[in-house]
Nucleic acid binder design. Structure first.
Ligand SMILES: [Mn+2]
Ligand SMILES: [Mn+2]
Ligand SMILES: [Mn+2]
Ligand SMILES: [Mn+2]
Lengths: 217, 217
DNA sequence: AAATAAAATTAGGTATACCTAATTTTATTT
DNA sequence: AAATAAAATTAGGTATACCTAATTTTATTT
C-alpha cells in the first residue's frame, strides 16, 4: 500500500504526464507539489524501490504499470468525490477540490465503484475533467482552449484547466460554467486578450492567461 | 488544527469517558489505541501543551472544552459517514467502521452539517450509537446490556458495543440487527451464558461476552 | 511496614517526509 | 571550447509519532 505522500506524488506525476509530452523532471514534480527538489529526489528513490516509477535522467520520471494503475484510481476517486460534494452535498464549484484532495486517499477496495454507481456513473467531474472508468479507461479529454478559437467563432466551455478558487470565483462572477456558450468577438494583437460574448449576452475582455485556462468543445 | 494522531487520541479519550466514570489512565488509552504506554505519555504532553486535554495523576486524563468540542465533531463525522456508507453506498454492517475511521478525519467546516442534512438528520448510526447533533448534544445513549435482562424478559437490540467484523458477522449469522426482539429464556449459572430466543423464532445459547456486547432498550 | 506487582515515566532509538546549504552534473550562452 | 546558469544530487538536519528497555513511582499484597 502507498502512503499519503506517495499517493500525492503519483497523482502529480500522472497529471504532468497527461498535460504534455515533455519529460517529467524532479524540478517539475517539486513545483507541482510545492516541495523542494531535494525532497523529490528522496522520494523518487523510495518510489523507484517500490516499483511505482522508473527514473532515467534522459527520459525523466515514468509511472510503472502499477504506478499508473494506482494513480488512475486516485484520480478516479478525486473526481467522483467532487461530483458527490457538488451534486449531493451542495458545495460550491470552488470548494470541492480541496475536500476531494483529502477524500481521494480513503482506501477501500469497492468504495470508488460503489460511489460511481451511486452517482450514476458520471463521465466528467464538475471541472469538466474526465473520470477514469473502473477499468482504468478515460473518457475523451478536452485539449482545445479558448485561446485557440478563431476570431468570430463560437464554442462551449467544456472544462477548466485551473481549479483554484480565485479562478473559479471569477468564472462565477462572469456567469461562466461548464456548457456556457462563448463567442470570440475580437483578439487584441498587443497581448492576445480576447473580447468575448458570454451566453449570447454579456460582453467582456479577458486575458490570455484566462483564455488558456478554459477548455472548449 | 489537530493532526490525524491527535484526532484518534481525542476520539479514544472521548469514548473512554463515555464508557464509564473510571479515570482515564495512560494505560487505558494505550490499550484503546493499540499503542505503547510510553508513546501515550509522549502524546499526553503534546496534547496538554495544545490545551486539548488536562492530565493529573490523581484525576487521570480529561478533555478540555476545546478537546471535548473537537472530539465530538470527529465522532459526529464518523457516525454520519457510517450511515452514508450503509444507506447510500450499500456497504455491509461490518465494513463501514474501518472506512469511517478514515473519513472522519476529512476536515471542512460545513462537511458534517451538509452530510447530516443529506442523510435526513439521523439520530443513531448503524451500530445504534447516538450521532452528536451540530450543537454538540448527544441523543440518548443506550447503556443496558443483554446481560442485564432478567430471565424470562424480552427486549429489543438498540446498539452494539463492539464494532469488530467478527462480532458483527456473528450477529448477521444469528439474524440479529438493530431492532431485533430478543427474549432471555435461561441463564446458565456456571458461566452466565444465556439461552435466548431471536425474533420469536430461533433459539440459541450465547456467551457472557456476547450478551455484554449488545445494548438493549 | 516490607515486599511485590503494576503503572508511569525517562532515555535513547527508528521511519517517514520534509527542509537548507553545499556540491556536482548537465545544459545554455557567449 | 570556455564560462555561466540551471538542474540534480548529496550531506546533514528537523518534527512527528511511534518503539523498546530501563528506571521510578504508585498501588496492592503479604
Ligand atoms: Mn491529496
Ligand atoms: Mn476536478
Ligand atoms: Mn480514525
Ligand atoms: Mn458506529
Amino acid at each position: 500500500m502507498n502512503t499519503l505522500s506517495e499517493e500525492n506524488y503519483l497523482k502529480a506525476i500522472f497529471r504532468l504526464s497527461q498535460k504534455s509530452d515533455e519529460k517529467i523532471t524532479p524540478t517539475a514534480i517539486a513545483e507541482a507539489l510545492g516541495n523542494n527538489a531535494a525532497s523529490v529526489v528522496d522520494m523518487i528513490r523510495k518510489m523507484t524501490d517500490k516499483e511505482l516509477i522508473e527514473y532515467d535522467k534522459k527520459k525523466g520520471v515514468r509511472l510503472t504499470q502499477q504506478g499508473l494503475k494506482d494513480s488512475i484510481l486516485i484520480v478516479r476517486k478525486h473526481r467522483l468525490w467532487e461530483v458527490f460534494l457538488l451534486e449531493k452535498l451542495g458545495f460550491h464549484w470552488d470548494e470541492i477540490h480541496d475536500i476531494a484532495e483529502e477524500l481521494e486517499h480513503v482506501s477501500n477496495a469497492s468504495l470508488a465503484d460503489r460511489l460511481d454507481k451511486f452517482l450514476g456513473f458520471p463521465e466528467y467531474d464538475p471541472h469538466g475533467d474526465p473520470i477514469p472508468k473502473a477499468n482504468g479507461k478515460l473518457p475523451k479529454t478536452f485539449t482545445v482552449s479558448l485561446a485557440d478559437v478563431k476570431t468570430g467563432a463560437s464554442c462551449k466551455v467544456a472544462a477548466v484547466r485551473d481549479t483554484s478558487s480565485s479562478f473559479l470565483q471569477y468564472l462565477v462572477k462572469l456567469g461562466i460554467g461548464i456548457g456556457t456558450p462563448i463567442q470570440v468577438l475580437e483578439r487584441i494583437a498587443f497581448d492576445q486578450s480576447l473580447v468575448i460574448k458570454i451566453n449570447e449576452q454579456d460582453q467582456t475582455t479577458v486575458s490570455q492567461r484566462f483564455s488558456e485556462s478554459i477548455l472548449i468543445s
